[in-house]
Design a protein around this nucleic acid. Structure first.
Lengths: 298, 298
DNA sequence: CTCTATGGATCAAGAGAACTCATCCATGAA
DNA sequence: TTCATGGATGAGTTCTCTTGATCCATAGAG
């Protein structure tokens, strides 16, 4: 063990306490050690320094001249360290960095984060969006919201919601064909992004496995927001997560004609490093999500 | 092990080095550790703080915001500690505290210490006299000169000289009886402190075991100086350590009529705590004694 | 002046932290 | 592509540090 190479730090901490209290026994109590341990550590320090620091008198110890010189500096140094760490804890606990997918950030966090901040005035929030699966080891982040299966090693994950989707369109557009009653009705309308794999999944679930919408497979990167905008504008039918558009539905800008919800097996998850599960700010955010998101699962 | 109760100091030291060098491997080299150990310690620190301090990028590590805040404080604190200890070493090495018997101090050190100080300009000397056997655990002292048998536990001891003694008197006094030729001649003169046990020992060695000098047993506490003064003044014959009075002999103030030296089994010793044998100042003093005192024995 | 309480030192033994070795992984450079 | 760099990981081992029991010296009380 080469750790004690320069000087034995633990011994210094013990010395600091002993010098402050002028008692090995008391120092032991303060540090949660036995008097034996204190005695040992002090001797260890004296040996490495090569200079006695205490005079052992019968019922009390006294600092030697050397000890007298050393003690205040050590106390000061420990003061700085301890303050630095305390400060760090406070400040770090004060900023929560969330990495989220663009969609979730725009459609859910945007509307609910205000509540979190009202309830946690001490915590500042920094929201970053990224489509990639962030790696906590190389990106500065406290928590992240991702889609996936929840099986990330080293990470704690809470399912936020099934990645449900269903066709949605503007009520005006629906009216143009006298309302959308059956899945077949959808085919009378323009399908927004027909290459989206979600369509096939949904139509299959609706009992129409063989529908051919044409179009090529396309990724959904950040596209959902545009699809939704197009749907609201009445340009066609989009396949969306209804959970994200409840307010548009409430405002009469979108309707979800069928209750049928499909999913592709990937959910939305709240994730954070396993090791940091007890961080105050992370706990606060998790608790907030738990009570705000009806489908939150531990 | 409760030592790491507040925060892991060794981990902090590792962190400090790693933050300064922006490299775990280099930090390892600096501290004489493997890269593995550094990685372990950093993680340990991050866990106790509850906050990542480094971002692990492929070929380099970066400080997180938290690490960035912490690093300079820690560096500062370590700087103070390290400086305090270095300083302590220097200053402490600069003052040598000698506890000696009064006789040895007066008769030997008084004359030779000047040489030591000339040869060691960086070392200040504080000379204290005490008859008791000092205890390094409760008295602030670096080295001591004692009489005894050299068997002190925990202490390193070097024999300085046999505690030889022999009758000594002023030449004038010797002349009053036509010179001192045989031990018997001594009996014609006044014996200074006839109760001194050394007399019996010496006369026995001289082949006169039954001499009765009268007087009661007396301790020799610091008395030797007075006996010598009395002898020089011609008040009688004293039994003294010739080594201490070579200059009085040279000045013709004292003579040692017989070569016969006796000893009571106790020698003069240079002693110091075993554990401090490598202290620079102690080494310096020991070396000085070794070369200055012909009868020095390791 | 003896008796008790206090504060440390010492010793042996055991726990567990911290270290090392070997190996793996990702990435930037040649 | 291949190589070199810098960290992470896992298993195994060393050895520091702690504990618990016991001893010792002294200050203060009775």
């Amino acid at each position: 063990m080469k750790m004690s190479k320069q000087f034995p730090l633990n011994a210094l901490r013990v010395f600091e306490s002993a010098a402050r209290q002028m008692s090995f026994t008391k120092a032991g109590e303060e540090l949660g050690l036995t008097q034996t341990a204190v005695s040992y550590q002090i001797k260890l320090l004296e040996d490495t320094i090569g200079e006695p620091l205490f005079l052992r008198r019968p019922r009390q110890v006294t600092l030697t001249e050397a000890g007298e010189r050393l003690a205040p500096r050590i106390t000061e140094a420990f003061g700085i360290m301890s303050e630095a760490i305390t400060n760090l804890r406070d400040t770090s606990e004060g900023t929560l960095i969330i990495h989220s997918t663009a969609t979730f950030a725009a459609r859910w966090l945007a509307r609910h984060l205000g509540t979190f901040q009202l309830e946690n005035p001490g915590i500042a929030v920094r929201l970053e969006t990224s489509h990639e699966m962030i790696d906590f080891a190389r990106t500065e982040a406290d928590v992240a919201i991702r889609t996936g299966k929840g099986d990330w090693p080293g990470l704690r994950s809470h399912s936020l919601m099934k990645s449900h989707f269903s066709p949605m369109l503007s009520p005006e557009l629906a009216a143009t064909i006298g309302g959308v009653k059956t899945p077949e009705d959808l085919l009378k309308l323009r399908i927004i992004d027909p290459g989206d794999p979600w369509w096939r999944i949904w139509f299959t679930a609706a009992g129409m496995p063989d529908v051919d919408l044409g179009g090529r497979p396309s990724s959904k990167f950040g596209a959902q927001a545009f699809e939704a905008a197009a749907a609201i504008a009445g340009h066609g039918v989009a396949i969306l997560k209804p959970e994200f558009y409840t307010d548009d539905v409430a405002l009469g800008r979108l309707i979800q004609p069928f209750d049928l919800l499909s999913d592709d097996g990937t959910d939305y998850w709240l994730v954070y490093p396993q090791t940091r599960r007890n961080s105050r700010k992370i706990r606060a955010f998790r608790d907030f999500m738990r009570k705000t998101m009806p489908t939150f699962r531990d």
